[in-house]
């Protein structure tokens, strides 16, 4: 019985490793190809390991003429602006719904949840018309207005969980000890909420940083491209004789993906929990 079980486990283990290999392969292939020259990549037999590879693809792709620097700047500006407003607004809203009872609270909560479910992809046309009638196409402000509204609901919902996790008794105790309500909040609750704020902030960062669909509609001008739009056009920029230079395109993909992967690994646990937490708890 025991030996049968270990053999089974071992086969399962090998199977798990094979699947891991399949899943990670595209990510590995992106990194591998990013170090190889177009001549190496054009060979009929693939090069499996980037021995003797170079950083040339990265150099070419990061050159200002490729538009990388201006797109990076655009992405950073839009992300920072959207994040700042989103976090502050969502945090205040989360405080209201988890610490106060007020008329209209229920409707607000329902609205927050229902908006999360609205398919952003079905609102493009309307958002495009609105931003274009305001004359804000191809501007940081225009797209940020939409991003803030898109990211607030989930961020608010996530923060609500964290605020509710800090017992109000703690604040009351501080108030008994002579703090004002605001003082008690700043000294007791706020520090306890910091990890939650970081997690929600990173989550919102990933959403905005990666967004492609709306950006492709609102930012059509070459000078206003964000990084995802830049990457989309990179295969045209690095074209050699009607065929993309895949090494350069992969170097571009690595540049876009790596910061996100790092941030993502930091908050992954909390994200899974935020989305299905209610179901797990039943």
């Amino acid at each position: 019985m025991n030996t049968k079980k270990t053999t089974g486990r071992r086969i399962g283990g090998i199977f798990a490793l094979l699947i891991a290999l399949v899943w990670v392969f595209p990510v590995y292939w992106m990194i591998n190809s990013s170090f190889l020259s177009s001549a190496t990549l054009a060979q009929l037999t693939p090069t499996w390991v980037p021995f003797g590879g170079t950083f040339n693809n990265y150099k070419t792709v990061m050159d200002p003429s490729s538009g990388f620097t201006s797109s990076l700047q655009m992405s950073v500006t839009i992300t920072l602006l959207s994040l700042l407003f989103c976090i502050v607004f969502a945090f205040l809203g989360a405080l209201a719904i988890s610490r106060f009872k007020f008329r209209g609270r229920k409707s607000f909560v329902v609205a927050i949840i229902v908006i999360q479910m609205l398919p952003a992809e079905a609102m493009f046309i309307a958002q495009y018309k609105m931003i274009s009638s305001l004359g804000l196409l191809n501007t940081v402000v225009g797209i940020s207005i939409i991003y803030i509204a898109t990211v607030i609901p989930f961020t608010l919902w996530m923060l609500r969980g964290f605020v509710a996790g800090v017992p109000a008794d703690l604040e009351e105790a501080a108030m008994v000890d002579g703090c004002t309500r605001f003082g008690a909040f700043m000294r007791v609750t706020f520090p306890l909420l910091a990890p939650g704020l970081v997690a929600s902030g990173v989550y919102a960062f990933i959403q905005v940083w990666n967004e492609f669909a709306l950006a492709s509609v609102l930012l059509t001008d070459e000078s206003s491209r964000t990084l995802p739009l830049w990457l989309r056009r990179l295969s045209e920029f690095s074209n050699v004789g009607g065929y993309p230079n895949w090494g350069e395109v992969m170097a571009g993909s690595v540049l876009v993906a790596v910061p996100v992967i790092i941030f993502f690994l930091i908050v992954q646990g909390r994200m899974t929990q935020g989305m299905v937490g209610g179901a797990v708890k039943g």
Partner: peptide, 18 residues
């Protein structure tokens, strides 16, 4: 870890790699 790496890829990078 393999799953997390695939999950973390931004959509445009995913599509470009594929």
């Amino acid at each position: 870890i393999a799953m997390l790496l695939a999950w973390a890829m931004p959509i445009v990078a995913q599509m470009t790699v594929w």
